[in-house]
Design a protein around this nucleic acid. Structure first.
Lengths: 159, 159
DNA sequence: CGAAATGGTCAATGAGGTTGACTAGTTGGA
DNA sequence: TCCAACTAGTCAACCTCATTGACCATTTCG
Protein backbone atom coordinates (compact mmCIF):
# COMPACT_ATOMS: atom_id res chain seq x y z
CA UNK A 1 0.00 0.00 0.00
CA UNK A 2 2.56 2.58 -1.00
CA UNK A 3 5.54 4.18 0.63
CA UNK A 4 5.67 5.05 4.26
CA UNK A 5 7.54 8.25 3.61
CA UNK A 6 5.15 10.80 2.16
CA UNK A 7 7.98 12.97 0.87
CA UNK A 8 8.72 10.41 -1.80
CA UNK A 9 6.47 11.65 -4.59
CA UNK A 10 6.90 8.74 -7.01
CA UNK A 11 3.65 7.17 -5.89
CA UNK A 12 0.80 8.78 -4.02
CA UNK A 13 -0.06 7.38 -0.63
CA UNK A 14 -3.00 5.04 -1.11
CA UNK A 15 -6.29 6.22 0.30
CA UNK A 16 -6.84 2.95 2.15
CA UNK A 17 -3.70 3.55 4.12
CA UNK A 18 -4.57 7.14 4.87
CA UNK A 19 -8.11 6.25 5.87
CA UNK A 20 -6.88 3.48 8.16
CA UNK A 21 -4.36 5.75 9.86
CA UNK A 22 -6.89 8.56 10.11
CA UNK A 23 -9.61 6.42 11.56
CA UNK A 24 -7.23 4.80 13.97
CA UNK A 25 -5.92 8.20 15.00
CA UNK A 26 -9.42 9.42 15.82
CA UNK A 27 -10.44 6.26 17.66
CA UNK A 28 -7.21 6.18 19.65
CA UNK A 29 -7.67 9.85 20.43
CA UNK A 30 -11.23 9.21 21.53
CA UNK A 31 -10.38 6.35 23.84
CA UNK A 32 -7.34 8.08 25.25
CA UNK A 33 -9.44 11.08 26.20
CA UNK A 34 -12.27 8.93 27.52
CA UNK A 35 -9.77 7.23 29.80
CA UNK A 36 -8.47 10.61 30.90
CA UNK A 37 -12.01 11.49 31.89
CA UNK A 38 -12.39 8.30 33.84
CA UNK A 39 -14.26 6.13 31.34
CA UNK A 40 -12.15 3.02 31.69
CA UNK A 41 -14.20 0.13 30.36
CA UNK A 42 -15.32 1.38 26.97
CA UNK A 43 -14.89 -0.86 23.98
CA UNK A 44 -14.94 0.59 20.48
CA UNK A 45 -18.11 -1.38 19.71
CA UNK A 46 -19.97 0.49 22.44
CA UNK A 47 -20.16 3.56 20.22
CA UNK A 48 -22.37 1.77 17.74
CA UNK A 49 -24.85 0.77 20.41
CA UNK A 50 -24.87 4.22 22.00
CA UNK A 51 -25.77 5.79 18.67
CA UNK A 52 -28.34 3.17 17.80
CA UNK A 53 -30.12 3.66 21.14
CA UNK A 54 -29.68 7.40 21.28
CA UNK A 55 -33.12 8.57 20.23
CA UNK A 56 -35.20 5.50 20.85
CA UNK A 57 -34.70 1.99 22.16
CA UNK A 58 -33.03 -0.52 19.89
CA UNK A 59 -32.90 -4.31 19.81
CA UNK A 60 -30.27 -7.02 19.54
CA UNK A 61 -31.42 -7.90 16.07
CA UNK A 62 -31.28 -4.28 14.92
CA UNK A 63 -27.78 -3.99 16.37
CA UNK A 64 -26.72 -7.20 14.65
CA UNK A 65 -27.93 -5.81 11.34
CA UNK A 66 -26.33 -2.44 11.93
CA UNK A 67 -23.00 -3.90 12.89
CA UNK A 68 -22.93 -6.82 10.53
CA UNK A 69 -22.53 -9.42 13.27
CA UNK A 70 -24.62 -12.33 14.51
CA UNK A 71 -27.57 -11.82 16.84
CA UNK A 72 -25.68 -13.69 19.50
CA UNK A 73 -22.68 -11.38 19.24
CA UNK A 74 -24.97 -8.35 19.46
CA UNK A 75 -26.71 -9.86 22.46
CA UNK A 76 -23.37 -10.43 24.19
CA UNK A 77 -22.32 -6.88 23.44
CA UNK A 78 -25.53 -5.61 25.03
CA UNK A 79 -24.83 -7.89 28.01
CA UNK A 80 -21.41 -6.28 28.43
CA UNK A 81 -22.83 -2.79 28.22
CA UNK A 82 -25.60 -3.66 30.64
CA UNK A 83 -23.03 -5.01 33.09
CA UNK A 84 -21.06 -1.78 32.71
CA UNK A 85 -24.22 0.24 33.32
CA UNK A 86 -24.57 1.97 29.98
CA UNK A 87 -27.77 0.31 28.75
CA UNK A 88 -30.66 -1.57 30.20
CA UNK A 89 -32.92 -4.15 28.74
CA UNK A 90 -36.44 -3.02 29.28
CA UNK A 91 -39.90 -4.40 28.89
CA UNK A 92 -40.87 -5.97 25.64
CA UNK A 93 -41.58 -3.82 22.67
CA UNK A 94 -44.70 -4.08 20.56
CA UNK A 95 -43.46 -7.46 19.36
CA UNK A 96 -43.57 -9.77 22.35
CA UNK A 97 -40.36 -11.41 21.27
CA UNK A 98 -38.41 -8.15 21.32
CA UNK A 99 -36.40 -6.91 24.27
CA UNK A 100 -35.80 -3.19 24.12
CA UNK A 101 -32.33 -1.83 24.75
CA UNK A 102 -32.26 1.71 26.14
CA UNK A 103 -29.52 4.02 27.34
CA UNK A 104 -29.18 4.52 31.06
CA UNK A 105 -28.34 8.02 32.36
CA UNK A 106 -24.74 6.86 32.48
CA UNK A 107 -24.99 5.74 28.87
CA UNK A 108 -26.34 9.14 27.88
CA UNK A 109 -23.37 10.73 29.63
CA UNK A 110 -20.92 8.51 27.81
CA UNK A 111 -22.54 9.28 24.47
CA UNK A 112 -22.27 13.01 25.21
CA UNK A 113 -18.61 12.61 26.13
CA UNK A 114 -17.90 10.68 22.93
CA UNK A 115 -19.55 13.30 20.75
CA UNK A 116 -17.78 16.14 22.52
CA UNK A 117 -14.39 14.51 22.14
CA UNK A 118 -14.94 13.87 18.45
CA UNK A 119 -15.82 17.54 18.04
CA UNK A 120 -12.57 18.48 19.81
CA UNK A 121 -10.54 16.17 17.63
CA UNK A 122 -12.10 17.59 14.48
CA UNK A 123 -11.30 21.11 15.69
CA UNK A 124 -7.70 20.09 16.13
CA UNK A 125 -7.64 18.75 12.60
CA UNK A 126 -9.15 22.01 11.39
CA UNK A 127 -6.38 23.92 13.12
CA UNK A 128 -3.79 21.82 11.29
CA UNK A 129 -5.10 21.90 7.74
CA UNK A 130 -7.78 24.55 7.89
CA UNK A 131 -11.54 24.29 8.39
CA UNK A 132 -12.14 24.48 4.64
CA UNK A 133 -10.01 21.40 4.06
CA UNK A 134 -11.81 19.49 6.81
CA UNK A 135 -15.19 20.35 5.30
CA UNK A 136 -13.89 19.41 1.89
CA UNK A 137 -12.83 16.01 3.17
CA UNK A 138 -16.23 15.61 4.81
CA UNK A 139 -18.11 16.50 1.65
CA UNK A 140 -15.87 14.42 -0.55
CA UNK A 141 -16.24 11.32 1.57
CA UNK A 142 -19.98 11.84 1.98
CA UNK A 143 -20.25 12.21 -1.78
CA UNK A 144 -18.44 8.99 -2.51
CA UNK A 145 -20.15 6.95 0.18
CA UNK A 146 -23.77 8.03 -0.04
CA UNK A 147 -26.25 6.13 -2.15
CA UNK A 148 -28.50 7.76 -4.73
CA UNK A 149 -30.76 9.12 -1.99
CA UNK A 150 -27.91 10.72 -0.13
CA UNK A 151 -28.05 8.13 2.63
CA UNK A 152 -24.86 6.78 4.12
CA UNK A 153 -24.60 3.04 4.68
CA UNK A 154 -24.41 1.78 8.25
CA UNK A 155 -20.89 1.71 9.52
CA UNK A 156 -19.67 -1.74 10.23
CA UNK A 157 -16.96 -2.08 12.84
CA UNK A 158 -13.42 -2.46 11.62
CA UNK A 159 -11.61 -3.71 14.69
CA UNK B 1 -21.62 9.73 16.03
CA UNK B 2 -24.17 11.83 14.20
CA UNK B 3 -27.14 11.14 12.06
CA UNK B 4 -27.29 8.30 9.63
CA UNK B 5 -29.17 10.35 7.08
CA UNK B 6 -26.79 12.83 5.51
CA UNK B 7 -29.65 14.89 4.18
CA UNK B 8 -30.39 16.15 7.64
CA UNK B 9 -28.12 19.17 7.73
CA UNK B 10 -28.52 20.07 11.40
CA UNK B 11 -25.33 18.33 12.30
CA UNK B 12 -22.42 17.40 10.05
CA UNK B 13 -21.60 13.73 9.74
CA UNK B 14 -18.65 13.08 12.05
CA UNK B 15 -15.37 12.37 10.36
CA UNK B 16 -14.83 9.23 12.42
CA UNK B 17 -17.97 7.76 10.97
CA UNK B 18 -17.09 8.73 7.44
CA UNK B 19 -13.56 7.44 7.79
CA UNK B 20 -14.79 4.14 9.20
CA UNK B 21 -17.31 3.67 6.41
CA UNK B 22 -14.78 4.73 3.78
CA UNK B 23 -12.05 2.45 5.04
CA UNK B 24 -14.46 -0.43 5.36
CA UNK B 25 -15.77 0.21 1.88
CA UNK B 26 -12.28 0.03 0.41
CA UNK B 27 -11.26 -3.05 2.37
CA UNK B 28 -14.50 -4.85 1.55
CA UNK B 29 -14.05 -3.85 -2.07
CA UNK B 30 -10.51 -5.14 -2.03
CA UNK B 31 -11.38 -8.49 -0.53
CA UNK B 32 -14.42 -8.93 -2.71
CA UNK B 33 -12.35 -8.44 -5.82
CA UNK B 34 -9.54 -10.61 -4.52
CA UNK B 35 -12.07 -13.41 -4.04
CA UNK B 36 -13.38 -12.83 -7.56
CA UNK B 37 -9.83 -13.33 -8.80
CA UNK B 38 -9.49 -16.54 -6.84
CA UNK B 39 -7.60 -15.32 -3.78
CA UNK B 40 -9.70 -17.01 -1.12
CA UNK B 41 -7.68 -17.16 2.04
CA UNK B 42 -6.47 -13.58 2.43
CA UNK B 43 -6.84 -11.91 5.78
CA UNK B 44 -6.74 -8.13 6.07
CA UNK B 45 -3.57 -8.36 8.16
CA UNK B 46 -1.76 -9.98 5.24
CA UNK B 47 -1.55 -6.62 3.50
CA UNK B 48 0.70 -5.23 6.19
CA UNK B 49 3.16 -8.08 5.87
CA UNK B 50 3.15 -7.94 2.08
CA UNK B 51 4.07 -4.28 2.17
CA UNK B 52 6.66 -4.71 4.86
CA UNK B 53 8.41 -7.47 2.92
CA UNK B 54 7.98 -5.89 -0.49
CA UNK B 55 11.43 -4.47 -1.08
CA UNK B 56 13.49 -6.45 1.37
CA UNK B 57 12.97 -9.18 3.93
CA UNK B 58 11.34 -8.26 7.18
CA UNK B 59 11.23 -9.93 10.60
CA UNK B 60 8.63 -10.90 13.18
CA UNK B 61 9.83 -8.20 15.51
CA UNK B 62 9.68 -5.54 12.80
CA UNK B 63 6.15 -6.66 11.92
CA UNK B 64 5.11 -6.54 15.56
CA UNK B 65 6.37 -2.99 15.83
CA UNK B 66 4.74 -1.98 12.55
CA UNK B 67 1.40 -3.45 13.48
CA UNK B 68 1.38 -2.66 17.15
CA UNK B 69 0.95 -6.27 18.23
CA UNK B 70 3.06 -8.72 20.22
CA UNK B 71 5.96 -10.60 18.69
CA UNK B 72 4.02 -13.79 19.19
CA UNK B 73 1.03 -12.47 17.26
CA UNK B 74 3.31 -11.34 14.45
CA UNK B 75 4.98 -14.72 14.43
CA UNK B 76 1.62 -16.47 14.19
CA UNK B 77 0.59 -14.20 11.36
CA UNK B 78 3.77 -15.08 9.50
CA UNK B 79 3.03 -18.75 10.20
CA UNK B 80 -0.39 -18.37 8.59
CA UNK B 81 1.02 -16.63 5.55
CA UNK B 82 3.75 -19.22 5.23
CA UNK B 83 1.15 -21.99 5.36
CA UNK B 84 -0.80 -20.17 2.66
CA UNK B 85 2.35 -19.86 0.55
CA UNK B 86 2.76 -16.08 0.50
CA UNK B 87 5.97 -15.77 2.51
CA UNK B 88 8.84 -17.93 3.52
CA UNK B 89 11.15 -17.81 6.48
CA UNK B 90 14.66 -17.84 5.20
CA UNK B 91 18.15 -18.12 6.55
CA UNK B 92 19.18 -15.90 9.40
CA UNK B 93 19.87 -12.26 8.81
CA UNK B 94 23.02 -10.47 9.96
CA UNK B 95 21.80 -10.89 13.54
CA UNK B 96 21.91 -14.59 14.20
CA UNK B 97 18.73 -14.40 16.22
CA UNK B 98 16.75 -12.97 13.32
CA UNK B 99 14.71 -15.07 10.92
CA UNK B 100 14.08 -13.28 7.66
CA UNK B 101 10.60 -13.20 6.17
CA UNK B 102 10.51 -12.84 2.39
CA UNK B 103 7.74 -12.87 -0.19
CA UNK B 104 7.35 -15.95 -2.32
CA UNK B 105 6.49 -15.52 -6.01
CA UNK B 106 2.88 -16.10 -5.00
CA UNK B 107 3.18 -13.40 -2.39
CA UNK B 108 4.54 -10.99 -4.97
CA UNK B 109 1.54 -11.80 -7.16
CA UNK B 110 -0.87 -11.16 -4.32
CA UNK B 111 0.78 -7.85 -3.52
CA UNK B 112 0.52 -6.81 -7.16
CA UNK B 113 -3.17 -7.76 -7.20
CA UNK B 114 -3.83 -5.78 -4.03
CA UNK B 115 -2.14 -2.66 -5.37
CA UNK B 116 -3.95 -2.93 -8.69
CA UNK B 117 -7.34 -3.30 -7.03
CA UNK B 118 -6.74 -0.31 -4.78
CA UNK B 119 -5.85 1.72 -7.86
CA UNK B 120 -9.12 0.61 -9.49
CA UNK B 121 -11.14 1.50 -6.41
CA UNK B 122 -9.55 4.93 -6.24
CA UNK B 123 -10.35 5.48 -9.92
CA UNK B 124 -13.97 4.67 -9.21
CA UNK B 125 -14.00 7.18 -6.40
CA UNK B 126 -12.47 9.74 -8.74
CA UNK B 127 -15.25 9.10 -11.24
CA UNK B 128 -17.87 9.77 -8.53
CA UNK B 129 -16.52 12.95 -6.97
CA UNK B 130 -13.84 14.05 -9.41
CA UNK B 131 -10.07 13.47 -9.39
CA UNK B 132 -9.46 16.85 -7.83
CA UNK B 133 -11.59 15.96 -4.84
CA UNK B 134 -9.80 12.64 -4.41
CA UNK B 135 -6.42 14.38 -4.46
CA UNK B 136 -7.71 16.98 -2.07
CA UNK B 137 -8.78 14.28 0.37
CA UNK B 138 -5.40 12.62 -0.03
CA UNK B 139 -3.50 15.83 0.61
CA UNK B 140 -5.76 16.85 3.48
CA UNK B 141 -5.40 13.54 5.28
CA UNK B 142 -1.65 13.41 4.63
CA UNK B 143 -1.37 16.92 6.02
CA UNK B 144 -3.20 16.12 9.21
CA UNK B 145 -1.50 12.78 9.80
CA UNK B 146 2.12 13.46 8.96
CA UNK B 147 4.59 14.48 11.61
CA UNK B 148 6.84 17.50 11.35
CA UNK B 149 9.11 15.71 8.89
CA UNK B 150 6.27 14.78 6.59
CA UNK B 151 6.40 11.14 7.64
CA UNK B 152 3.20 9.18 8.15
CA UNK B 153 2.94 6.96 11.22
CA UNK B 154 2.74 3.22 10.71
CA UNK B 155 -0.78 2.07 10.18
CA UNK B 156 -2.02 -0.13 12.92
CA UNK B 157 -4.74 -2.58 12.00
CA UNK B 158 -8.27 -1.63 12.91
CA UNK B 159 -10.04 -4.95 12.84
C1' DC C 1 -55.52 -23.20 12.33
C1' DG C 2 -50.93 -24.39 12.03
C1' DA C 3 -46.54 -24.36 9.43
C1' DA C 4 -43.01 -21.21 8.75
C1' DA C 5 -40.54 -17.39 10.14
C1' DT C 6 -38.59 -14.36 13.60
C1' DG C 7 -36.47 -12.44 18.20
C1' DG C 8 -33.59 -13.82 21.41
C1' DT C 9 -30.66 -16.75 24.08
C1' DC C 10 -27.89 -21.12 25.15
C1' DA C 11 -23.74 -23.89 24.85
C1' DA C 12 -19.97 -25.15 22.25
C1' DT C 13 -16.45 -23.82 19.24
C1' DG C 14 -12.85 -21.15 16.67
C1' DA C 15 -9.85 -17.19 15.33
C1' DG C 16 -6.60 -14.28 16.71
C1' DG C 17 -4.78 -11.83 20.10
C1' DT C 18 -1.85 -11.50 24.94
C1' DT C 19 1.05 -13.24 28.69
C1' DG C 20 4.90 -15.26 30.89
C1' DA C 21 8.49 -18.47 30.19
C1' DC C 22 12.18 -20.14 27.70
C1' DT C 23 16.37 -20.75 24.36
C1' DA C 24 19.87 -18.87 21.56
C1' DG C 25 22.36 -14.99 20.14
C1' DT C 26 24.07 -10.10 20.74
C1' DT C 27 25.72 -6.11 23.20
C1' DG C 28 28.63 -3.48 25.97
C1' DG C 29 30.75 -2.30 30.36
C1' DA C 30 34.06 -3.89 33.68
C1' DT D 1 38.08 -11.43 27.65
C1' DC D 2 34.18 -12.23 30.42
C1' DC D 3 29.60 -12.18 31.60
C1' DA D 4 25.35 -9.72 32.95
C1' DA D 5 21.82 -7.61 30.57
C1' DC D 6 19.30 -7.37 26.66
C1' DT D 7 17.06 -8.94 22.31
C1' DA D 8 14.87 -12.17 18.55
C1' DG D 9 11.96 -15.56 18.33
C1' DT D 10 9.07 -19.28 19.74
C1' DC D 11 6.32 -22.21 23.14
C1' DA D 12 2.19 -23.23 25.75
C1' DA D 13 -1.59 -21.56 28.07
C1' DC D 14 -5.05 -18.36 28.32
C1' DC D 15 -8.43 -14.64 27.07
C1' DT D 16 -11.68 -11.98 24.25
C1' DC D 17 -15.03 -11.83 21.05
C1' DA D 18 -16.86 -13.62 17.36
C1' DT D 19 -19.71 -17.75 14.87
C1' DT D 20 -22.54 -21.91 14.66
C1' DG D 21 -26.37 -24.81 15.45
C1' DA D 22 -29.99 -25.70 18.60
C1' DC D 23 -33.81 -24.31 21.15
C1' DC D 24 -37.99 -21.72 23.12
C1' DA D 25 -41.51 -18.25 22.75
C1' DT D 26 -43.93 -15.31 19.80
C1' DT D 27 -45.55 -13.58 15.41
C1' DT D 28 -46.88 -14.00 10.64
C1' DC D 29 -49.52 -15.43 6.91
C1' DG D 30 -51.42 -18.81 3.67
Amino acid sequence: MGRVNATEPSQPVPLARLLAIAYRSLVDGLHGRLRDQGWVDVRPAFGFVLLAARDQPTTSTALATLMGTTKQAASKLVDSMQDAGYVERSANGPDGRQRHVSLTPRGVQLLAAVEEIYTELEREWASLIGPNEVERIRRGLTGVLSDDHGVLPPVRPTW
